[in-house]
Simulated scan of single mutants.
Amino acid sequence: MSSDRSRHQDFDITLWQGRTDPEPDSERWHQKIQPLTENASPGCALIGFACDAGVARNQGRVGAAEGPAALRRALAPLAWHRQAPAYDAGDVCCEGDAMEEAQQALADRLASLLAARHFPVVLGGGHEVAYASWSGLARHLVARGESAPRIGIINLDAHFDLRNPSHVRSSGTPFAQIANDCAQRDWPFRYACLGVSRAANTRALFHRANELGVMVREDREITVQRLADIEQDLADFIRDCDHLYLTIDLDVLPAAEAPGVSAPAARGVSLALIEPLIEGIRDSGKLRLADLAELNPGRDIDGRTARAAARLVHLLTLND
């Protein structure tokens, strides 16, 4: 249940605007999106996480709380190619520094969406969203009677986000928190982090990733020449998982493609190389939910980051 220090914001039709073409079969997202209702048939459910308290705690550039609205505006005019419906489930909004309460509220909402057989896509928000997303999936799987599910976490990110949460929980700690939760539950911890920048992660974080058995592929490894090998590595990882949770930190993209993030990447991995990886994850049949994090509209240039994020949502939802 939501705390009084987090709140829910309902569907806002003003964010879903765009051109309308006269030709048949020319709909766009803004014409097809629907507010989520209790008895809605299964579809893609977008839910915003208007929170960047974790970014503030991590001493990053705040502003990602405005990300969900900007992402909706960028997605609204894109062409509609889905068969199943898509819904807007509104936003979970963080009040002040109440990050944990907002995470709990989002986890509650995600568990409900999954129980209703929707495919949730969370629009962030800081990368503290990852702990909430995983928690919602874990709660859903426990409710279904799964005792030790093999949840594969695939993080497209310049950062491990494996910092020690015993000091302060933030946007830099979600996967360490998940690892701790898995250990307490006696669940396997399966984590793949693709796009890691060696310059942006300390030796301690690389050691931590090694101790946890994280599948690591650095940004400099993900090239056109090596893409097929990376795709095979990812397929091998997926094969040993029962369920997948995909999280995309937009700072995995080069700063020229995604300037509107807390920590723009000097190198990054281009959209052209990220998309085939996402397609493989999407088409695996195991993807249960996804989120996109760190869109900071106040730092964006000409809406580049919002447009890239919208394209990724569009790609993620193409197979329905």
Rank of each mutant, 00 (worst) to 15 (best):
Val216Ser: 04
Asp219Met: 01
Arg198Tyr: 07
Glu218Lys: 09
Ala50Glu: 11
Leu271Asp: 10
Leu141Ile: 11
Gly136Lys: 12
Leu162His: 06
Arg226Leu: 05
Ala132Val: 11
Val214Ser: 01
Ala176Ile: 07
Gly18His: 04
Ile47Tyr: 09
Arg208Ile: 02
Leu273Arg: 14
Ser133His: 14
Arg307His: 15
Val55Gln: 01
Asp10Arg: 12
Ala308Met: 06
Ser6Leu: 00
His243Gly: 01
Asp157Ser: 12
Ala69Tyr: 02
Ala50Arg: 10
Asp21Asn: 15
Glu95Asn: 14
Gly90Trp: 09
Ala89Met: 01
Ala183Leu: 05
Arg203Glu: 15
Phe206Asp: 03
Ile301Asp: 12
Gln31Lys: 12
Leu234Gly: 00
Asn296Val: 09
Arg19Leu: 10
Ala183His: 13
Glu66Met: 15
Leu75Thr: 02
Asp249Ile: 03
Leu114Val: 02
Asn58Asp: 11
Asp236Ile: 08
Ser166Trp: 10
Leu78Pro: 09
Glu128Trp: 08
Arg203Lys: 09
Asn39His: 14
Met1Pro: 08
Val62Gly: 03
Ala130Val: 14
Glu294Lys: 07
Asp300Cys: 08
His81Ser: 13
Ser170Ala: 13
Cys51Trp: 02
Glu294Asp: 13
Val62Phe: 02
Ser41Thr: 15
Pro120Glu: 00
His314Met: 06
Cys51Met: 04
Lys32Asp: 00
Ser197Pro: 03
Ala107Ser: 15
Arg185Phe: 02
Ala86Lys: 01
Arg220Asn: 13
Val168Cys: 09
Ser166Cys: 05
Leu156Phe: 15
Gly152Thr: 08
Pro68Trp: 04
Leu141Asn: 10
Leu292Trp: 04
Thr173Trp: 01
Leu137Trp: 09
Leu295Gln: 02
Leu106His: 11
Ala290Leu: 05
Val252Trp: 04
Ile151Thr: 03
Arg198Phe: 02
Ser26Ala: 12
Arg226Tyr: 11
Ala199Cys: 10
Val313Pro: 08
Asp161Thr: 07
Ile178Val: 12
Phe49Tyr: 15
Ala179His: 08
Val261Trp: 05
Asn155Met: 00
Cys51Thr: 00
His159Leu: 00
Glu211Tyr: 09
Ala74Pro: 11
Tyr87Phe: 12
Lys32Ile: 00
Tyr191Gln: 02
Ala158Trp: 03
Ala70Leu: 01
Cys44Met: 14
Ile13Pro: 07
Cys193Tyr: 08
Leu289Gln: 09
Asn201Arg: 02
Leu156Asp: 03
Gln9Cys: 04
Lys32Ser: 03
Arg304Ser: 07
Pro276Asn: 06
Ser133Gln: 13
Met215Glu: 05
Asn201Pro: 09
Leu205Met: 08
Gly48Pro: 11
Leu141Met: 11
Leu227Pro: 05
Ala293Met: 13
Gln104Glu: 14
Arg239Val: 13
